[in-house]
Simulated scan of single mutants.
Amino acid sequence: MPKDIIEKLKSANLLGRGGASFPTYLKWQMVKDTPAKKKYVVCNVSEGELDVFKDGFILENYPTQIVEGLKIALKTIDHSYGYIFLRKDYYQKYKKRLEKLTKNLPITIFKEKGGYLSGEETVVCQEIEEQILRPRQKPPFPGQTGIDGSPTLINNLETFYYVALIAKNQYKYTRFYAITGDIKHKGVFELPLDWSLKRILKETGNWLVDQDFFAQVGGGASGDILLPSELNRSINGVGSLIIFDKAKTDLYQLMERWVNFFMKENCDKCTPCREGIYRLREMIKQRKIESEVLKDLWLVLEETSFCALGKSVATPFRSLIKKVLT
């Protein structure tokens, strides 16, 4: 393991691949520099968003690199213990393989108990501590006060995969894209970071030439809606791209799918999120969009929700209604 791995992560400008796109080296440096007798490193493989499946692909095809990246973190951060935090079905499928790869290492293969919200980093800490599955107030951040009050590094498994490559000087500035929807070639593709969404679709044979379509980028529930004219940009957040043929898509059914997902996955902790999503669902079920009511609803959700789930609810609905429905 190179002694200058944090500098290598900084030079590579590796951003977290779980959605927040936070600089990886800053997380590592925070945990490394925070004094404590015990520290933790967590590989987050919760992946609870609708139609996002890149982590499962990486876990299936590159488990050795994931574990290698985790080992590098454990060696870099003194007094640390590791967890691989797995979605329920991933736990059933990959537990034995990962146990073989982590034999004699201070790493536990952990089965998550919740759903979408379990991917939020403070909920990861709550789950491992066997506490109620609700987000914590930030700050303090897990890098300062995480599992059992100890500094905790939490990265997505794709991030650990690229840590392993960066350590060996094999990083080629790529990322994984999960592409699905009304297209011919669904799947996960490892492609350059700087490619535009339009180029990604064309290079994978998924650009719809004769159909009027729109895309959802960054998640199958919370992702933003983009029109073909807006696809000359690279992707931010989660590497997810879903294509909808407008002629085949019932927009209200699509919104109902989103809102039912948020209804199921919210933790009921804060009133704005709980009641706001309920009000939104009632409007969608009636197939009646009240623009002025929605403006107030978006404001309340984004400004007063406790965690990122509530704050992100408005994104897909607002962009779909503005760009496609009206």
Score class of each variant (00 low, 15 high):
Ala36Val: 09
Arg17Tyr: 09
Ser46Thr: 06
Tyr94Thr: 04
Gly237Asp: 00
Phe262Arg: 01
Tyr162Met: 07
Pro151Leu: 05
Pro142Lys: 09
Gln216Pro: 08
Phe261Tyr: 10
Leu15Ser: 04
Lys88Ala: 04
Val67Ile: 15
Tyr25Asn: 15
Thr159Tyr: 05
Asp33Tyr: 04
Lys88Glu: 00
Cys273Pro: 05
Arg287Cys: 09
Gln286Met: 13
Arg233Asn: 13
Phe57Ile: 11
Glu290Arg: 01
Ser11Arg: 12
Asp89Ser: 13
Gly239Leu: 02
Glu158Phe: 06
Tyr90Pro: 03
Asn13Glu: 15
Glu47Val: 11
Lys95Cys: 14
Tyr161Val: 05
Cys273Asn: 04
Leu86Cys: 09
Cys43Ala: 14
Ile284Arg: 00
Lys269Gln: 15
Gly149Arg: 12
Thr159Val: 11
Thr102Glu: 02
Phe22Met: 06
Gln65Asn: 13
Lys103Trp: 06
Ile5Pro: 01
Glu47Ser: 10
Thr34Met: 12
Leu86Met: 13
Lys113Tyr: 01
Lys322Ala: 11
Lys323Thr: 05
Thr108Met: 02
Thr249Met: 05
Gln144Ile: 13
Gly146Leu: 03
Gly218His: 02
Gln144Glu: 15
Asp89Thr: 15
Met30Asp: 09
Ser305Lys: 10
Pro228Asn: 07
Tyr25Ser: 15
Ile166Asp: 00
Met263Arg: 14
Leu201Asp: 02
Glu129Trp: 04
Gly149Leu: 11
Ile289Ser: 03
Leu201Gly: 00
Glu190Arg: 08
Leu15Tyr: 04
Lys111Phe: 04
Cys43Val: 07
Pro23Lys: 12
Lys39Ser: 01
Glu68Gln: 15
Pro139Lys: 01
Glu292Asn: 13
Arg279Cys: 10
Lys113Glu: 07
Glu282Pro: 05
Pro2Thr: 10
Pro316Asp: 05
Asp268Met: 12
Ser312Gly: 12
Phe261Met: 06
Val217His: 01
Leu15Trp: 01
Ile289Gly: 03
Lys295Asn: 15
Cys270Lys: 11
Glu256Lys: 15
Leu254Met: 01
Leu165Val: 01
Lys8Ile: 08
Ile58Thr: 11
Lys248Tyr: 10
Ser229Asp: 13
Pro63Met: 10
Cys267Pro: 09
Gly18Pro: 09
Ile109Arg: 00
Tyr252Leu: 13
Ile225Trp: 02
Leu280Ser: 02
Gln286Phe: 09
Ala215Ile: 09
Arg199Ala: 12
Lys3His: 11
Asn232Gln: 01
Gln137Asp: 10
Ile289Phe: 03
Ser11Pro: 02
Gln211Arg: 15
Asn232Tyr: 04
Gly69Val: 14
Asn44Gln: 06
Phe57Thr: 08
Val67Ala: 08
Met255Asp: 02
Asp250Thr: 08
Lys37Cys: 11
Gly187Val: 08
Gln92Lys: 13
Ile179His: 05
Asp4Asn: 11
Leu117Gly: 05
Thr271Gly: 07
Ala215Thr: 08
Thr315Lys: 03
Thr122Gln: 00
Tyr161Ala: 06
Asp245His: 04
Leu14Asn: 14
Asp212Pro: 09
Leu227Thr: 12
Leu157Arg: 02
Phe213Leu: 11
Tyr81Leu: 04
Ala308Val: 12
Trp207Cys: 06
Gln286Trp: 05
Gln144Thr: 14
Phe110Gly: 02
Gln131Cys: 13
Arg279Asn: 13
Thr315His: 04
Asp250Phe: 07
Thr108Gly: 02
Gly143Asp: 03
Ala221Gly: 07
Lys246Pro: 11
